[in-house]
Computed example of a mutant assay.
Amino acid sequence: MIAITGANGQLGCLVIQSLLKRVPAGQLIALVRTPEKAEDLKEQGIEVRQADYNRPETLAPALAGADKLLLISGSEVGQRVPQHKAVIEAAREAGVKLLAYTSILKADRSPLALAGEHKVTEQMIAESGIAAVMLRNGWYTENYSAQAPGLVEMGAVAGAAAEGRLATAAREDYAEAAAVVLTSEENQAGKVYELAGSQAFTLAEFAEELARQSGKKVEFAPMSQSEFTGVLVGAGLPEGFAAALADAEAHAANGWLFDDGGDLERLLGRKSQSLAVAVERGLA
Protein backbone atom coordinates (compact mmCIF):
# COMPACT_ATOMS: atom_id res chain seq x y z
CA MET A 1 0.00 0.00 0.00
CA ILE A 2 1.20 3.50 -0.90
CA ALA A 3 0.02 6.43 1.22
CA ILE A 4 0.16 10.03 0.02
CA THR A 5 -0.20 13.02 2.33
CA GLY A 6 -1.95 16.14 1.07
CA ALA A 7 -3.61 13.88 -1.48
CA ASN A 8 -6.21 16.41 -2.56
CA GLY A 9 -3.72 19.26 -2.89
CA GLN A 10 -2.32 20.48 -6.21
CA LEU A 11 0.71 18.18 -6.20
CA GLY A 12 -0.99 15.31 -4.38
CA CYS A 13 -3.78 15.02 -6.93
CA LEU A 14 -1.27 14.85 -9.77
CA VAL A 15 0.80 12.22 -7.94
CA ILE A 16 -2.28 10.06 -7.51
CA GLN A 17 -3.27 10.38 -11.16
CA SER A 18 0.22 9.32 -12.15
CA LEU A 19 0.20 6.42 -9.68
CA LEU A 20 -3.11 5.19 -11.08
CA LYS A 21 -1.34 4.61 -14.40
CA ARG A 22 1.03 2.25 -12.60
CA VAL A 23 -0.86 0.49 -9.80
CA PRO A 24 -4.51 -0.37 -9.03
CA ALA A 25 -6.53 2.16 -7.03
CA GLY A 26 -6.87 -0.39 -4.25
CA GLN A 27 -3.16 -0.06 -3.51
CA LEU A 28 -3.42 3.65 -2.72
CA ILE A 29 -4.27 5.48 0.50
CA ALA A 30 -5.15 9.16 0.16
CA LEU A 31 -4.36 11.05 3.35
CA VAL A 32 -6.33 14.29 3.63
CA ARG A 33 -7.22 16.77 6.32
CA THR A 34 -10.92 16.81 5.37
CA PRO A 35 -12.18 13.52 3.86
CA GLU A 36 -15.45 15.17 2.84
CA LYS A 37 -13.48 17.17 0.28
CA ALA A 38 -12.00 14.05 -1.32
CA GLU A 39 -15.12 12.39 -2.69
CA ASP A 40 -13.58 12.35 -6.17
CA LEU A 41 -10.76 10.16 -4.88
CA LYS A 42 -13.20 7.76 -3.24
CA GLU A 43 -15.11 7.51 -6.51
CA GLN A 44 -11.91 6.32 -8.17
CA GLY A 45 -11.68 3.43 -5.72
CA ILE A 46 -8.97 4.98 -3.55
CA GLU A 47 -9.15 4.59 0.22
CA VAL A 48 -9.40 8.02 1.84
CA ARG A 49 -8.26 8.52 5.42
CA GLN A 50 -8.13 11.58 7.62
CA ALA A 51 -4.61 12.74 8.45
CA ASP A 52 -4.17 16.22 9.89
CA TYR A 53 -0.59 17.44 10.37
CA ASN A 54 -1.79 19.53 13.32
CA ARG A 55 -3.57 16.59 14.99
CA PRO A 56 -0.89 13.93 15.56
CA GLU A 57 -3.44 11.47 16.96
CA THR A 58 -4.91 11.12 13.45
CA LEU A 59 -1.62 10.15 11.80
CA ALA A 60 -0.66 6.67 13.07
CA PRO A 61 -4.14 5.20 12.40
CA ALA A 62 -4.09 6.80 8.94
CA LEU A 63 -0.81 5.07 8.13
CA ALA A 64 -1.83 1.60 9.32
CA GLY A 65 -0.95 -0.95 6.65
CA ALA A 66 1.03 1.48 4.51
CA ASP A 67 4.30 0.10 3.14
CA LYS A 68 5.37 3.31 1.44
CA LEU A 69 4.61 6.92 2.28
CA LEU A 70 4.97 10.07 0.22
CA LEU A 71 5.28 12.97 2.64
CA ILE A 72 4.40 16.05 0.63
CA SER A 73 5.82 18.99 2.54
CA GLY A 74 3.24 21.11 4.33
CA SER A 75 2.15 24.45 2.91
CA GLU A 76 2.31 26.39 6.18
CA VAL A 77 5.77 27.95 6.08
CA GLY A 78 7.10 28.26 9.62
CA GLN A 79 4.96 25.37 10.89
CA ARG A 80 6.39 22.58 8.79
CA VAL A 81 9.01 21.20 11.19
CA PRO A 82 6.56 20.16 13.95
CA GLN A 83 4.05 19.01 11.35
CA HIS A 84 6.58 16.86 9.53
CA LYS A 85 7.96 15.53 12.81
CA ALA A 86 4.50 14.26 13.73
CA VAL A 87 4.17 12.45 10.39
CA ILE A 88 7.65 10.92 10.63
CA GLU A 89 6.99 9.63 14.14
CA ALA A 90 3.66 8.17 13.03
CA ALA A 91 5.33 6.52 10.04
CA ARG A 92 7.88 4.88 12.31
CA GLU A 93 5.13 3.69 14.65
CA ALA A 94 3.15 2.29 11.72
CA GLY A 95 6.14 0.40 10.34
CA VAL A 96 6.37 2.24 7.03
CA LYS A 97 9.16 0.63 5.00
CA LEU A 98 9.98 3.54 2.67
CA LEU A 99 9.38 7.24 3.18
CA ALA A 100 9.68 9.60 0.21
CA TYR A 101 9.84 13.31 1.01
CA THR A 102 9.31 16.28 -1.31
CA SER A 103 12.18 18.52 -0.29
CA ILE A 104 13.79 21.47 -2.08
CA LEU A 105 16.64 21.62 -4.57
CA LYS A 106 20.06 21.26 -2.87
CA ALA A 107 18.36 21.30 0.55
CA ASP A 108 21.46 20.27 2.48
CA ARG A 109 23.42 23.35 1.37
CA SER A 110 20.92 25.81 -0.06
CA PRO A 111 21.02 29.36 1.38
CA LEU A 112 17.34 29.94 0.57
CA ALA A 113 15.23 30.87 3.59
CA LEU A 114 12.65 28.34 2.38
CA ALA A 115 15.25 25.56 2.53
CA GLY A 116 15.66 25.68 6.31
CA GLU A 117 12.59 23.63 7.21
CA HIS A 118 13.37 21.12 4.48
CA LYS A 119 16.91 20.62 5.74
CA VAL A 120 15.65 20.00 9.28
CA THR A 121 13.00 17.59 7.97
CA GLU A 122 15.62 15.61 6.04
CA GLN A 123 17.67 15.37 9.24
CA MET A 124 14.66 14.16 11.23
CA ILE A 125 13.95 11.50 8.63
CA ALA A 126 17.57 10.33 8.72
CA GLU A 127 17.47 10.12 12.51
CA SER A 128 14.16 8.20 12.48
CA GLY A 129 15.76 5.09 11.05
CA ILE A 130 13.10 4.76 8.35
CA ALA A 131 14.44 3.89 4.90
CA ALA A 132 13.92 7.04 2.87
CA VAL A 133 14.36 8.73 -0.49
CA MET A 134 14.62 12.51 -0.98
CA LEU A 135 12.79 14.13 -3.88
CA ARG A 136 14.39 17.56 -3.94
CA ASN A 137 12.00 19.47 -6.16
CA GLY A 138 13.22 22.63 -7.82
CA TRP A 139 11.04 25.65 -8.50
CA TYR A 140 7.67 25.07 -10.16
CA THR A 141 7.29 26.56 -13.64
CA GLU A 142 3.74 27.48 -12.59
CA ASN A 143 5.24 30.00 -10.15
CA TYR A 144 5.71 32.07 -13.29
CA SER A 145 3.48 30.68 -16.02
CA ALA A 146 0.31 30.84 -13.90
CA GLN A 147 0.74 34.62 -13.82
CA ALA A 148 1.08 34.85 -17.61
CA PRO A 149 -2.16 36.74 -18.45
CA GLY A 150 -1.56 39.39 -15.78
CA LEU A 151 2.09 39.84 -16.74
CA VAL A 152 1.15 40.33 -20.39
CA GLU A 153 -1.47 42.89 -19.35
CA MET A 154 1.13 44.79 -17.30
CA GLY A 155 3.75 44.39 -20.00
CA ALA A 156 6.43 43.50 -17.47
CA VAL A 157 7.96 40.63 -15.53
CA ALA A 158 9.28 41.92 -12.22
CA GLY A 159 11.83 39.91 -10.30
CA ALA A 160 15.05 39.80 -8.31
CA ALA A 161 16.73 36.88 -10.10
CA ALA A 162 18.79 39.15 -12.38
CA GLU A 163 20.44 36.92 -15.03
CA GLY A 164 20.18 33.76 -12.90
CA ARG A 165 18.99 30.69 -14.78
CA LEU A 166 15.90 28.96 -13.41
CA ALA A 167 15.75 25.21 -14.06
CA THR A 168 12.04 24.93 -13.28
CA ALA A 169 9.70 22.05 -14.04
CA ALA A 170 5.95 21.65 -14.25
CA ARG A 171 4.10 20.38 -11.20
CA GLU A 172 2.91 17.37 -13.20
CA ASP A 173 6.52 16.45 -14.01
CA TYR A 174 7.49 16.44 -10.33
CA ALA A 175 4.35 14.39 -9.61
CA GLU A 176 5.22 11.81 -12.24
CA ALA A 177 8.78 11.55 -10.90
CA ALA A 178 7.39 10.82 -7.42
CA ALA A 179 5.10 8.13 -8.84
CA VAL A 180 8.02 6.55 -10.69
CA VAL A 181 10.10 6.39 -7.51
CA LEU A 182 7.23 5.04 -5.41
CA THR A 183 6.53 2.21 -7.85
CA SER A 184 10.10 1.41 -8.88
CA GLU A 185 11.31 -2.17 -8.50
CA GLU A 186 14.76 -0.75 -7.78
CA ASN A 187 15.64 -0.14 -4.13
CA GLN A 188 15.17 3.60 -3.49
CA ALA A 189 16.37 3.70 0.12
CA GLY A 190 19.10 6.28 0.63
CA LYS A 191 18.72 7.93 -2.76
CA VAL A 192 18.63 11.69 -3.21
CA TYR A 193 17.21 13.13 -6.41
CA GLU A 194 17.98 16.74 -7.34
CA LEU A 195 14.95 17.41 -9.52
CA ALA A 196 15.12 20.29 -11.99
CA GLY A 197 13.80 20.98 -15.46
CA SER A 198 15.52 20.03 -18.69
CA GLN A 199 15.36 23.64 -19.89
CA ALA A 200 16.54 26.60 -17.83
CA PHE A 201 15.64 30.22 -18.52
CA THR A 202 16.24 33.71 -17.19
CA LEU A 203 13.37 36.03 -16.31
CA ALA A 204 14.30 38.10 -19.37
CA GLU A 205 13.84 34.99 -21.53
CA PHE A 206 10.53 34.30 -19.80
CA ALA A 207 9.41 37.83 -20.69
CA GLU A 208 10.52 37.26 -24.29
CA GLU A 209 8.44 34.07 -24.49
CA LEU A 210 5.41 35.87 -23.12
CA ALA A 211 5.87 38.59 -25.72
CA ARG A 212 6.32 36.07 -28.53
CA GLN A 213 3.19 34.12 -27.74
CA SER A 214 0.97 37.07 -26.86
CA GLY A 215 2.13 39.39 -29.60
CA LYS A 216 2.43 42.15 -27.02
CA LYS A 217 5.39 43.98 -25.54
CA VAL A 218 6.60 42.33 -22.31
CA GLU A 219 9.91 43.30 -20.71
CA PHE A 220 11.88 42.12 -17.70
CA ALA A 221 11.93 44.67 -14.87
CA PRO A 222 14.92 43.77 -12.65
CA MET A 223 14.54 44.70 -9.00
CA SER A 224 16.42 44.44 -5.75
CA GLN A 225 15.28 41.88 -3.22
CA SER A 226 13.60 44.53 -1.07
CA GLU A 227 11.89 46.14 -4.04
CA PHE A 228 10.53 42.80 -5.20
CA THR A 229 9.31 41.99 -1.70
CA GLY A 230 7.33 45.24 -1.80
CA VAL A 231 5.81 44.33 -5.15
CA LEU A 232 4.69 40.93 -3.86
CA VAL A 233 3.20 42.45 -0.71
CA GLY A 234 1.40 44.96 -2.90
CA ALA A 235 0.00 42.06 -4.91
CA GLY A 236 -1.58 40.66 -1.75
CA LEU A 237 0.96 38.13 -0.47
CA PRO A 238 1.60 37.96 3.29
CA GLU A 239 4.79 39.85 4.12
CA GLY A 240 6.68 36.82 5.43
CA PHE A 241 5.90 34.70 2.38
CA ALA A 242 6.65 37.58 0.02
CA ALA A 243 10.03 38.02 1.69
CA ALA A 244 10.78 34.30 1.33
CA LEU A 245 9.95 34.32 -2.38
CA ALA A 246 12.05 37.43 -2.99
CA ASP A 247 14.88 35.80 -1.03
CA ALA A 248 14.64 32.75 -3.31
CA GLU A 249 14.88 34.88 -6.43
CA ALA A 250 17.83 36.81 -5.05
CA HIS A 251 19.66 33.52 -4.48
CA ALA A 252 18.54 32.32 -7.92
CA ALA A 253 20.67 35.13 -9.31
CA ASN A 254 23.63 33.14 -7.96
CA GLY A 255 22.48 29.80 -9.37
CA TRP A 256 20.63 28.28 -6.44
CA LEU A 257 17.53 27.42 -8.49
CA PHE A 258 19.56 25.85 -11.29
CA ASP A 259 20.70 22.26 -11.67
CA ASP A 260 21.70 20.35 -14.78
CA GLY A 261 22.32 16.92 -13.27
CA GLY A 262 19.44 15.40 -15.22
CA ASP A 263 17.80 13.42 -12.38
CA LEU A 264 14.28 14.48 -13.33
CA GLU A 265 14.76 13.69 -17.00
CA ARG A 266 16.13 10.24 -16.16
CA LEU A 267 13.19 9.41 -13.90
CA LEU A 268 10.68 10.59 -16.50
CA GLY A 269 12.46 8.95 -19.40
CA ARG A 270 11.90 12.16 -21.36
CA LYS A 271 12.54 15.88 -21.20
CA SER A 272 10.43 17.89 -18.80
CA GLN A 273 7.75 20.29 -20.04
CA SER A 274 9.23 23.20 -21.99
CA LEU A 275 8.83 26.86 -21.10
CA ALA A 276 6.99 27.42 -24.37
CA VAL A 277 4.34 24.83 -23.47
CA ALA A 278 4.04 26.19 -19.93
CA VAL A 279 3.51 29.73 -21.21
CA GLU A 280 0.97 28.51 -23.77
CA ARG A 281 -1.00 26.78 -21.03
CA GLY A 282 -0.67 29.77 -18.73
CA LEU A 283 -2.03 32.16 -21.35
CA ALA A 284 -4.89 29.77 -22.10
Results as ranks from 00 to 15, higher is better:
I2G: 12
A252P: 02
L182D: 14
E172V: 10
L203W: 04
L203T: 00
A113V: 01
L71T: 04
L195R: 10
T183C: 12
A178W: 13
A175S: 10
D259Y: 03
P222H: 14
K216F: 15
E93A: 15
Q213C: 15
E185T: 02
L257T: 02
A278V: 08
I46D: 13
A132M: 02
F220V: 08
L31E: 09
E76A: 11
Y174H: 09
A94C: 10
I2V: 13
E185F: 07
A160Q: 08
E172L: 10
L63W: 01
R109P: 01
A276H: 08
A244L: 07
K217G: 12
A276D: 15
S18A: 15
I72P: 03
M134C: 07
T229R: 06
A62R: 01
T58W: 04
P111A: 05
L237N: 08
E153R: 05
Q273M: 13
H84E: 09
E227H: 11
T121E: 03
G190N: 05
A204K: 02
D67H: 03
L203F: 13
Q123P: 02
G236V: 11
R212K: 15
A250Q: 08
L14I: 04
L203I: 00
P149A: 12
N137K: 06
W139S: 04
G45R: 13
P149Y: 09
K21I: 08
Q10V: 11
E208T: 06
A156P: 03
N8T: 07
A178P: 07
L59W: 06
L41P: 00
K21R: 14
A178D: 14
L283K: 02
N137I: 10
G197N: 05
G26Q: 15
E176D: 14
G6L: 13
L203Y: 07
M124Q: 06
R266N: 09
Y144K: 02
E186M: 06
G150I: 08
Y140A: 08
T58I: 14
G74V: 10
I2D: 15
V279Q: 11
V133L: 05
